[in-house]
Design a protein around this nucleic acid. Structure first.
Lengths: 237, 237
DNA sequence: CGCCGTCTTGATGCCCTCCTGACGCTTCGG
DNA sequence: CCGAAGCGTCAGGAGGGCATCAAGACGGCG
């Protein structure tokens, strides 16, 4: 499970990054915002550190010299549920999606701003504690949207919303991993089964329907967010 | 769940016993003390009877020819809370304990007297009704529909409604989880037993009957709602 | 043993959900 | 500046689920 450090002291972040410049930047920035930093410049170092130090979060650059970032994600996920935020350069879309499919929680595209970085890290950490301690929260609430997974009921401004079976399954998949980016593949597998893992068109149609039923302005969604080229995300907060 | 017959008529007891002598004795004794008797000489018969007739109590001999009494207990407990009293010969202590672990309510050791038998049965039945009614809401009320699970009475606008056994079981299942969606499977298992888990047609027929007896406009139900592709739900309001 | 109520099973028509295709828009890269 | 790819939207057709009616099978009861 997650290291207990998080509950007592500042979160421990394992930064896996081979670019000295970026590493220097992170080494200075993160402690200033209440994080302790653990460094790794290669995949091999990263795996050792992750295992021996049990960090609260992993910030993982995909462009590593020795091993694929995807493989690192896969190996860590083999025994740990620690949140993983992958960092990708432009043109690494494929690796990024693969890492998310393998269980990464979120992603950042270079170059990224400090605010965005910190925001993603906060969300990932919050998501981890929710899943870890809440043990399968049976409901989701945010603004005037409420989802009761136990009763299979959805409310918008307190008014019950009627969803079809597929609409509800899709929403439930997002709720179960609220705040986390879910790839097309993950959603398709969870809702339509492994046989439809490539039918991304289904997602577009049903996302549109969900937005029409749940959002004030379906064209500019507040909760059901599109992650272009990657998948979708349910905004928490 | 438990057959509701007990509140209106004599309790139905499923006697699982392969010794003809003892069976003859019980067949004569139990009716004389206000029980109706259902017979089974093998585990296979017992399971079929338990499922199709839904007795109020099971009197289960552990020394059966075909299957372990322990296994019978386990299978019945898989879907029903009917009280089970196991009957064991001397030297079967181990099986007896295992049966209790598997969910049996009490035990008798051969040879046993009539008084002891009747006492154990009364206790088991009392315990069942106490748990059955005490657990969760004992009644449901919403608008002009009222369901009293303890008394097995249903009122509409204050007037008592006559329901058949199956109609009532179905309504009771919905009342026990009022407000939540129950899947076809859940309802079928609770009302008809696990063997009929796929007979969704039963549900439609009995839902229609319940709606005709309880709803103002059966075509547009206020309480007995359809969740297409999923199941049914009793609106709490 | 026969009657009556209940349960099961079948057949039919309707409506809704799901899937699918076409099209326009935006974004990104050449 | 243009083409490609990803996304959102709309609408129609096919299929499946649902409600309903009706008749036969079953079991309880007198």
């Amino acid at each position: 499970m997650i290291d207990e450090a998080s509950s007592r002291r500042e979160p421990l972040v394992l930064v896996v990054e081979d670019e000295p410049q970026l590493m220097r930047f992170l080494r200075a920035t993160l402690p200033a915002h209440g994080y302790r930093v653990l460094e790794a410049a290669t995949a091999a170092q990263a795996l050792v550190q992750a295992e021996t130090r049990q960090p609260d979060l992993v910030l993982l650059d995909l462009g590593l010299p020795d091993l694929d970032g995807l493989e690192v994600t896969r190996r860590i996920r083999g025994w740990s549920a620690v949140p993983i935020v992958v960092v990708s350069a432009r043109g690494q879309e494929r690796d990024k999606v693969a890492a998310l499919d393998a269980g990464a929680d979120d992603y950042l595209t270079k170059p990224f701003g400090t605010d965005e970085l910190l925001a993603r890290m906060r969300v990932a950490l919050r998501h981890a504690t929710r899943v870890g301690s809440g043990q399968g929260e049976a409901s989701f609430e945010s603004g005037d949207l409420r989802v009761d997974l136990a009763a299979r009921l959805v409310y918008r401004r307190g008014v019950e919303v009627r969803l079809t079976r597929t609409e509800y399954r899709l929403l439930a998949a997002l709720v179960k991993h609220a705040g986390k980016v879910l790839t097309h593949r993950q959603l398709l597998v969870e809702v339509w089964g492994p046989g439809s893992a490539n039918e991304t068109h289904y997602l577009r149609v049903y996302m549109a329907q969900l937005r029409h039923k749940l959002e004030d302005d379906p064209a500019q969604p507040r909760w059901l967010l599109t992650e272009t080229g990657v998948g979708y995300r349910l905004r928490t907060d």
